[in-house]
Simulated assay, not measured.
Amino acid sequence: MLYIPKSLVAIIAIGLTLTCSSAHAADSYFTIRSADGSKTVEITAEAIEKAGSVTFKTTLPGTDGEELHEVRGPLMQSLLEQAGLEAEEYTAVALDNYEIDVPAEDFKTHGAIAAVEVDGKPLTVRDKGPAWIVYPRSDNPDLTDPIYESRSVWQLKELVAK
């Protein structure tokens, strides 16, 4: 009979768990769902490709101040239309469970995107990804107001239509 130490079994189990978790995390950036939970749409790479991408240079809240960064991702409004969930307001929820209500008007008029890339590099959880709500702050000085900074949710986990 083959003897396998418990410590080795534990290491293998942890490795498998991390591998499965990473694979799942790569499949979905975040979800958009109705408040009652009757409809949930996974935002995947395919959904992002279908929505199209926008690229612009802007400053990023919570980073190095006035340095411009090139961000790329689909318009939030395009993702909402694709998901078929329309509301007056959405609750943006981050991986750390930070929550903030965002008026639908923000997505319709300000050109906020779900950034999935900054400076040509895909976002990871370690660097505020895999998706980050980013406003084109450098194009519109009104968007540097602290209210928009609070709505610039990084590590976006879900958007709930209210």
Rank of each mutant, 00 (worst) to 15 (best):
L2Y: 13
P5V: 11
K6E: 15
K6W: 12
K6A: 14
S7D: 15
I14G: 10
L16D: 06
T17M: 14
L18V: 10
C20Q: 15
S21L: 11
A23Y: 14
A25D: 09
A25F: 05
D27I: 15
I32N: 01
R33D: 02
S34G: 08
S34H: 08
A35Q: 10
A35F: 07
D36N: 00
G37F: 00
G37Y: 04
E42Y: 10
A45T: 10
A47C: 11
I48R: 08
I48H: 02
E49H: 13
G52D: 08
V54M: 04
V54F: 01
T55C: 07
T58Y: 00
T58V: 02
T58E: 03
L60P: 02
G62A: 00
E66W: 13
E66C: 14
L68V: 08
L68H: 08
H69S: 10
H69K: 07
H69Q: 09
V71A: 01
V71H: 01
G73M: 05
P74D: 12
M76L: 10
S78I: 07
L79G: 00
A83Y: 00
G84C: 05
E86W: 14
A87G: 00
T91C: 06
V93Q: 07
A94K: 04
N97F: 15
N97Y: 12
E99Q: 10
D101I: 01
V102Y: 01
P103E: 01
A104K: 10
K108I: 04
K108P: 04
A112R: 06
A112H: 03
E117M: 13
E117W: 02
V118G: 05
D119F: 01
D119C: 07
P122S: 04
T124P: 02
D127F: 03
K128G: 08
P130D: 03
V134S: 03
Y135L: 06
Y135V: 02
Y135R: 07
R137I: 08
D142P: 05
D142A: 07
L143V: 06
D145T: 01
P146Y: 11
P146E: 11
Y148M: 06
S150W: 13
V153R: 04
W154L: 04
K157A: 13
L159Y: 03
A161G: 05
K162F: 09
